[in-house]
Write a protein that binds this DNA or RNA. Structure first.
Length: 459
RNA sequence: GGCGCAUUCGUCUAGGGGUCCAGGACGCCGCCCUCUCACGGCGGUAACACGGGUUCAAAUCCCGUAUGCGCUACCA
């Protein structure tokens, strides 16, 4: 049997990091078992779903770098992959459910149901549907929804791949709506129809759907369909341990892209949030994790999103990349003719792509520092006669001559030197900084050369 | 309220009856490297929610309690 998994976002905004992690686990599982990864858009809630949002979610998924074999944009053998385009299919199966007498038309008004529910709750009874339309089944075309009837043998036990056995008693459920009065299916119905029709073998989704599984299994049974395997992934929490939301800061994948995070780092971190590699590795490519991924190593407890660790992971990726690899990624945030050289000099002090501009500010902006003439003048003379160092050897030669000329050494020499050339008391090593300033000033007229800087100090 | 899920350092986690007075990572602290900042290296800090069982032996199995979260919709 070929593994087929799906990620089924509802297009109501950008892709959320929680959704991203669910997508990653699905993708990893598909790769691990050489299966198929399907994207299905769950847009049956017309009031909240937009086509624009669907495009954003797909774009976020593309940015993360998890290609899918079937989906609304690429099609596939089970098209369409947008639930709003599959209503005839749902209606067909809803009709079949009614033919089998496990579903029925419900003509109750929403207000009426609300009142009954409140009354039941007030009286301490379970707020389940009172079965009025089940007991008086009819089939006219007055406005109605379609309701599924929970059978007497409605107890359900599943063997969740992450949580183990989970059971529910039939009593915990009332008859529930499968087709709304607007003719569109509810989630619990469309998801079953689609997962069956699309031959999904493993349903890997967020924990918030765990209790919905009871209803869904009942529908599978009523239709006589094979029940897929389930794996419910725990939620991602904010620092206060409530479900991660906007008030905790950035929650959408696109926001992280804008904040200078790399897709590889994002996928790496999110994979680590709930899954651990059997060899204990924490930095790994998606190919590496895909060969080792298994659902039994997915943690069933919710995980707090740790922004600091994400930054660290992102830094690990940036530090491991060459300046040439980094340049095209940094350019959208900050671009100068000497970008690649600049990146090479400061990349170890940066954790995010958008921090390069700041880290290289000293190259573009220079405020003359208070520097003792006893150093500034010999330095200016040195730069005039011997030129500016171009590499480690010429830098060391310059330092030796300066030591002789000034009688200074160690910190007493280097700090004023740094101040004179960068205007700051901290930054990358001088042996790298000076050649960078030289090259940058050569290709970029807005950058002052080392000599120009020193001259400003003397004036 | 009912049902369901969860609970190991501040955070992510390892662990599946003895090898655990609990290991790794992030963070934090210290030291080293060093002109500074960062990187890197080394070291330190810090946890089995609580109470009962089962067992020669429990972080690991069972039962309660507490706490958190989810579902209980004509949202997904």
């Amino acid at each position: 049997m070929t593994v087929r998994v799906r990620f089924a976002p509802s297009p109501t905004g950008h892709l959320h990091v929680g959704g991203a992690r669910t997508a990653i686990f699905n993708w990893l599982f598909a790769k691990r078992y050489h299966g198929t990864f399907v994207i299905r858009v769950e847009d049956t809630d017309q009031s909240r779903s937009t086509r624009q949002s669907e495009a954003m979610v797909l774009e976020d998924l593309r940015w993360l770098g998890m290609p899918w074999e079937e989906g609304p944009d690429v099609g596939g053998p089970h098209a369409p992959y947008r639930q709003s385009e599959r209503t005839e299919i749902y209606n067909r199966f809803a009709a079949e459910l009614m033919t089998r007498d496990v579903a029925y038309r419900c003509y109750c008004a929403e207000e009426e149901l609300d009142e009954k529910r409140k009354a039941a709750e007030a009286a301490g009874r379970p707020p389940h549907y009172d079965l009025k339309c089940w007991h008086n089944r009819r089939n006219d075309d007055a406005p109605h929804a379609v309701r599924f009837h929970v059978p007497d043998d409605g107890d359900v036990t599943i063997d969740d791949l992450i949580r183990g056995e989970v059971s529910w008693k039939k009593e915990s459920l009332g008859d529930f709506i499968v087709v709304r009065s607007d003719g569109l299916p509810t989630y619990n119905f469309s998801v079953v129809v689609d997962d069956h029709e699309m031959e999904i073998t493993h349903v890997i989704r967020a924990e918030e759907h765990l209790t919905n599984t009871h209803r869904q299994v009942l529908i599978y049974r009523a239709m006589g369909w094979t029940v897929p395997e389930f794996a419910h992934v725990s939620l991602i929490l904010g620092p206060d341990r409530s479900k991660l939301s906007k008030r905790h800061g950035a929650t959408s994948v696109s926001q992280y892209a804008e904040d200078g995070f790399l897709p590889d780092a994002m996928v790496n971190y999110l994979t680590l949030l709930g899954w651990s590699s059997p060899d204990g590795a924490e930095i790994f490519t998606r190919q590496e994790s895909a060969t080792k991924f298994s659902l039994d190593r997915v943690n069933s407890a919710p995980a707090v999103f740790d922004h600091q660790k994400l930054e660290w992971v992102n830094g690990q990726y940036i530090h491991a990349m060459t300046a040439a690899q980094l340049r095209p990624l940094v350019a959208p945030f900050f671009d100068v003719p000497w970008l690649e050289e600049g990146i090479d000099v400061v990349k170890t002090s940066v954790h995010r792509l958008n921090q390069f501009a700041d880290a290289l500010r000293f190259v573009r902006e220079y405020e003359p520092a208070e520097v003792d003439r006893a150093l500034a003048e010999p330095l200016a003379a040195e730069l005039r006669t011997n030129g500016t160092p171009v590499d480690e050897a010429t830098y060391k030669a310059m330092v030796e001559r300066l030591k002789t000329a000034t009688g200074l050494k160690g910190k007493a020499l280097f700090m004023p030197l740094r101040m004179a050339l960068t205007g700051s008391d901290h930054g990358p090593e001088l042996v790298r900084t000076i050649p960078l300033l030289r090259r940058a000033s050569a290709v970029d007229p807005s950058v002052l050369s080392p000599l120009q800087r020193v001259e400003k100090c003397i004036r």
